[in-house]
Design a protein around this nucleic acid. Structure first.
Lengths: 347, 347
DNA sequence: GTGAAAGCGCTAACAT
DNA sequence: ATGTTAGCGCTTTCAC
């Protein structure tokens, strides 16, 4: 089966290729009459332009890359929806790359997209990433990058984050208000900026309430559920176990609840729990989980909007502007006694 | 900044472009010595091949499209992981397109990927899709397609599904075994083949147990949570409300639980619930949810494997083979009294 | 308003 | 083993 090209259209219409090309892109130098004829023939023959020929020539591909750790995570899934909404609107294609929290994969992916395949990048770092040479190399190519959520330090470009420090401070304060004396902070990385911010908020709240803090109050988990479950089991089986947990990672909520079930620890009676999480099912868990809910859709949407604006203007490199979209705390029964009405706290 | 091309490499090395090209692709007609020199220079100048030039010339792009309804859904998120694992392994890129259950979007997307941008398609239909002309057009172009989960009838190509009929029969039987006399079946579409299969299993189980069935026992929901909640509220507020629900869609579990909370209906006391769902949090809900869990990762993985096999062989069109990977039923407290141990049922 | 011609960067015949 | 040449399909000067 013969693929229909501009050349074929031109022959059928007894026009030159350039005229057909211009007509298809609605150039003002082509008469309306000719445009109509060309469009009609294109429709009739079901002509579809070859995107690679076009990209090669124009040095732009109408494609962006989204590089994220996971897709089976409510935050990133919702962020993708936000990105996709803008992309479909602007006629862009979205290549999705998953690092699975692996630094090596991230490096390989970043290297792989440096060759002109894409016009821009939306990215959230892997939890393992502590060196940034691969990203500096990417930025140096002049490829527009917008980091969202897990941003990269030291690269002068646009970022979209939420108010991690304030949210974490507020969540910790809430645990303290609920009577917690010993709160452990859970993370999956020590290096991510976002972890640092959340940790800082947590520590400041402790300090402001004259509560002690020791490095042992930070539990660093991995991207491995079995391993995390055993870490958390160890933590909660101790005689001097904490009476509050602040998890900076959505996926750890599952581990915490599972372990508490196994140990017959009651939430919130013996342990109060707050989790940074966008889980749809948070209100339906046993007990309903108090969450810091991030504006995932909006963050993806905003990041994409910034990127497309830069692409449109043809800016080489992006302004160093940082959007911050606030999170919301949803107070539920994992921190307060049964019967307390649900409260939503702006941050 | 000058992008490094084969031409530049050739000039620096005082070789011809074709020699460099062949050396880079490790052709046997090039001496080891030359290969080494070329590779060294390529590394030194940080040469990256232009994928569009290559795609244009070779008429293959090392890119596949994944067309699915949603990404914020455990089944599809896990399926993507399965697909991505194979794609990364084979060096393919993955374009993700979301239909959001809209037929119009699906048509637009399918049209958009028909132009040689991609080498193959993995697809799961939108719930609105009832006409298949756009997909026949796609198939006619000779583009390899593998349908998974929500397959398209009438297109002779490979498919990957789970044992929907058997799973649904077994789940219904389980509800009946738990004492249900009036079971309502929830779906988001009447047209999807998969819905039909699940409905068939449900009806057969009713018949085999001499239970009546009326069309009113099917509740067709939409892609709109507020609307679904009100539909389900209407269903459960009736005096002759059902005593069992079989939901063929993951996202409806949230609605069912939310409505039951509002109506103070106890699960499983007054209503027993089974849901086709891959939710990680199913065991942690109040009460733990009995699910039919689909092999999402394996289905994505298998679909991708079949596609890549076809791409490798250069088969025009795919064999009409259908893989079926069984689901598992996880019996939890939404169907059985508290205290009953968790049971896993092979299907 | 239309056409001729060059070239994006790469690959694959076909020489040598 | 290396080089010459043509061309993938499209866009874009530049000429008429």
């Amino acid at each position: 089966m013969q693929t229909v090209t501009i050349k074929i259209l031109a022959e059928k219409l007894k026009l030159s290729r350039s005229t057909v090309s211009k007509a298809l892109s609605d150039s003002h130098e082509i008469s309306q009459d000719t445009k109509n004829r060309v469009l009609a023939m294109a429709a009739k023959l079901d002509y579809a332009p070859n995107p690679y020929a076009s990209s090669l020539r124009k040095k732009s591909s109408k494609t962006i890359a989204v590089v994220i750790p996971e897709v089976a995570d409510s935050f990133f899934a919702q962020a993708i929806n936000g990105i996709e909404a803008v992309a479909q609107d602007k006629g862009y294609h979205v290549l999705i790359y998953l690092t699975h929290e692996s630094f090596l994969r991230e490096k390989a992916i970043v290297k792989d997209i440096q060759n002109g395949r894409i016009d821009g990048v939306l990215m959230s770092l892997s939890s393992e990433t502590t060196s940034f040479a691969h990203l500096h190399a990417l930025a140096k190519k002049g490829l527009p990058i917008v980091f969202f959520d897990r941003v990269c330090p030291g690269i002068p470009t646009a970022t979209v984050t939420t108010n991690d420090y304030a949210a974490s401070y507020r969540a910790t304060q809430h645990l303290i208000d609920c009577g917690c004396k010993k709160i452990v902070f859970l993370a999956i990385s020590k290096s991510l900026l976002i972890t640092g911010e959340r940790l800082r908020g947590y520590q400041q709240a402790l300090t402001d309430n004259a509560l002690p803090f020791t490095p042992a109050d930070i539990l660093v988990c991995k991207n491995d559920m079995a391993h995390n479950n055993s870490l958390i089991t160890k933590l909660l089986a101790k005689p001097n176990r904490p009476d509050g947990l602040l998890s900076s990672v959505e996926k750890l909520a599952t581990s915490i609840y599972t372990v508490c079930n196994q140990l017959h620890l009651s939430i919130p009676g013996q342990l109060k729990v707050v989790c940074f999480s966008n889980l749809q099912t948070a209100p339906l868990l046993q007990p309903p989980l108090t969450t810091v809910t991030q504006p995932a859709f909006a963050m993806g949407n905003t990041a994409a909007t910034i990127l497309f604006k830069a692409l449109k203007k043809g800016t080489i490199g992006l302004k160093n502007d940082s959007e911050v979209i606030p999170s919301i705390m949803m107070v539920r029964n994992s921190t307060e006694a049964i019967g307390t009405p649900f409260t939503e706290v702006a941050l």
